[in-house]
Amino acid sequence: MQESPVSTGMVRMPAGAYVPFSRGEKDPARVPVGAFLLDELPVTNGEFLEFVRATPKWRRSQVGSLFADSSYLANWGGDLELGPGAPADSPVVHVSWFAARAYARWEGKRLPTTAEWEFAAAAGYAGPDGRNEARFNSDLYAWFARPVPEVLPPVRTAKANYYGVRGLSGLVWEWVEDFNTAMVTGESRADSSADRNLYCAAGAVGVKDTGDYAAYMRMALRSSLRANNTTSSLGFRCARNLEPRTASTPWQRNSRS
């Protein structure tokens, strides 16, 4: 038996639950998350370059507007050229949901779900719930206080959280598989209607400790996006189901071997 090479660079996340910050009446208070594999780091420019080299239809000059808007890979030098605005070991940004999914499939992986991603991001440095960790919170909110830098820093600058996953905060926003089930309307104050039991941003923050409105901001960002959108601070990482390890597991094409 051998470790599938696809899981190199991935962290094995334990089973757990995602406690949504905001939910509708009929939604569960806890969403169970099965054990899964999550990339340790977000996908980099270098890795995405390998992908577009292998799949010409995802190159900047080839991609259709239905799948990526006109800012797709805007910070790259060319179709196959990263240029100074996109260092090879910095997170890839200006990618749409369609492009992120295509990359994940090419690697034999998939995008994480919101529940999986938020479950991983709930952890601080020292334990599975970062809300009361002063150091973790100050790093997290410091990122919101800074503008987007012209050139993003390398992924290796990211700190590991309790699970060993790095850069879930402090680098870029990240696509998830079910981004469009986020619950924020354009009108953030109307979300607090009593019938639907949704939290208005201010009311919800009042309910819990001051430490966790970051989840609300991530939800707001996801709600503002359409599947073909790209932005200068939105990237992604991949996830994968755990597989039984057998000799006959197909060898998946991936760029990390």
């Binding site: 919101f144 503008p147 987007v148 926003w173 309307t185 354009g186 009108e187 953030s188 104050r189 109307a190 901001m217 707001a220 960002l221 709600s223 503002s224 996006l225 359409r226 959108n229 932005t231 200068s232 601070s233 939105l234």
Partner: peptide
């Protein structure tokens, strides 16, 4: 980094415009 919108108190309509102006970066 963030999406933004606008509510103008001069507007009569949902959110004062905010429901219709939610804009990603």
């Amino acid at each position: 980094k963030l999406p933004h919108n606008i509510d103008l108190h001069a507007v009569i309509g949902p959110g004062g415009g905010a429901a219709s102006a939610f804009t990603a970066p």
